[in-house]
Design a protein around this nucleic acid. Sequence first.
DNA 1: ATGAAAGCGCTAACAT
DNA 2: ATGTTAGCGCTTTCAT
Lengths: 339, 339
Amino acid sequence: MAVTIKHIADKAGVSLATVSRVLNDSGYVKEETRKKVVQAIKELNYTPSAIARSLTKKKTNVVGVVVPDINNPHFGELIKGISKVVDAANLNMILCDTDESTEKELKALQLLREQRIEGIIVSPTSNENDFNSECLNTLENLGIPIVLLDGDVKYSNFSGVFVDNIKGAYEGIMALIKEGHSKIAIITGRINSKPAKDRLIGYKKALAANNIDINEEYIFYGDYKEESGYKLTQEILNMKNRPTAIFTSNNMMTLGCIKALNEHGISIPRDMSIVAFDELKVLNILGMNISFIATPTEEMGRTAMELLLENLKDKEKSHVNRITMHPKLLLKGSEKFKK
Amino acid sequence: MAVTIKHIADKAGVSLATVSRVLNDSGYVKEETRKKVVQAIKELNYTPSAIARSLTKKKTNVVGVVVPDINNPHFGELIKGISKVVDAANLNMILCDTDESTEKELKALQLLREQRIEGIIVSPTSNENDFNSECLNTLENLGIPIVLLDGDVKYSNFSGVFVDNIKGAYEGIMALIKEGHSKIAIITGRINSKPAKDRLIGYKKALAANNIDINEEYIFYGDYKEESGYKLTQEILNMKNRPTAIFTSNNMMTLGCIKALNEHGISIPRDMSIVAFDELKVLNILGMNISFIATPTEEMGRTAMELLLENLKDKEKSHVNRITMHPKLLLKGSEKFKK
DNA sequence: ATGAAAGCGCTAACAT
DNA sequence: ATGTTAGCGCTTTCAT
């Protein structure tokens, strides 16, 4: 199918080297010759092969990005931030969706490795999967820079951009307590993920700071998906000693939670208060005043890619750099206590 | 950096060919030798280079997907559908977000071409950009299969999966008319896009079928983005001869529209009825009963990829195949006429 | 200013 | 059953 540099060379009556020179604007080439080559390229509708070039140069100019769920707006925003930097740096990006499965995450990592990407940004699905962490280590040993986003990997010391989840949750719960709540339920994420763990810690810390006993019955273990937010909220509503407020640990579960509340005709915050981790812009658009712990998501993506870029330039010098960003409490009224 | 097949061969004391054989499970290789090779691969932590392999085989096993906006749930679902088929076929996918810009679309196409992808699915940003359509033609001339999704490209006859936009809009408007509406505003998409055009045609057709005069003042030209839905709805609300219903041509503009209605304290459908093209699942989750013209989005993605797959197998035989899917009217009450 | 040739990592005849 | 070798399309010394 493809027309190659050889065809161009023949057509233009020059050598391969010369064509390569005009292609790369490198070395000397007489204007006249150059014209001929350019002409041939046009006529034959030629595009260089990134594949061949990569092989020769031992450089693909491609970075890999691995996220659990492209369709989750949280990751959508991270990706947007990453993309901007990628574009500006004239790199290309291979995006992998792991569908929240560690198995697929492994596959993605493997794929990216085969593609000889220059570096990788991973937002890990969980942090206690040995395979996973083993694979990441493999990648690192291979000498390709890694930047973590949002999550963390156990037994490792990768560069990364994180969020102070403890503080975020702490502040959210504090806001509820300040309103007068003491029976506060939490819907956590998969508890083997660092962020979920930390958010739970923040929850407990805030309660402790206010001498409120921790009621294990108020701790619900979800999996970051809408369905679990939905189901667990139903459970919450059925409790005899029903909490007066719910803290949801991520955006999808917040949706599920709201859905359940709606279906039960529970009004926010009249019948139930709520504070949610991760801003859901669509709720703002729709005029639903839900209080959020908002993370600077797009900025985090941007920062992660910038970090990666640094490591890409420096090579060898691969200095570990861990950046923690601060979430912001956005109170909109859903935390209010009405009795 | 990288360990190559040569290293493995040396370590295992065999030839390159033998290593390649165990790598690809091809040809004969004694179990004992095989063991040695596998061992060497493990020890050296080797992964084959997809780059080199692609060059040799003249086959990358990569397909390209180009969409205007990953963060729009509509495209998110299309991508999900595509991904499933891609995974099942053991292919890889390079996903490009054009940010609704024809310029970036062109760049993406160029990039994909350089990467020597096997085929491409494009959901075009607009259909009257000459460059764009020229580039698509280039790709086709190159002999790589193309499948269009959702949009269409002028002067071309590519394979593709489309939606009967005329019919969808027609039915949506009909539902409004049946409720008693006659003053119906439409917020269209960029009018140089085929889907937007067709949705407008459906709108006019339905009015005509009911002998309702078309009031050009009720036709608002948006750009498929939330902001335009928001602004245009505000305009609508300020009209002296205010419509009683709004038809929005895509999901993002629907959000903007609802936002504006909320801000003005307009209740749906008490003060304003609404029917929207493209289902917004999040609205269902939140218990907002908005009536939709729903397209089988994920299925469309799946189908498009299956089409591409066929063209990939057959090669040469690249039969043009255009599939039109039917939207479904989901009435939930927001179309009601209350006087 | 241009060309010849080696090599990037791998596969696929062709030999043996 | 295994090895040798010629490419795949390109870049890059090194000559000229």
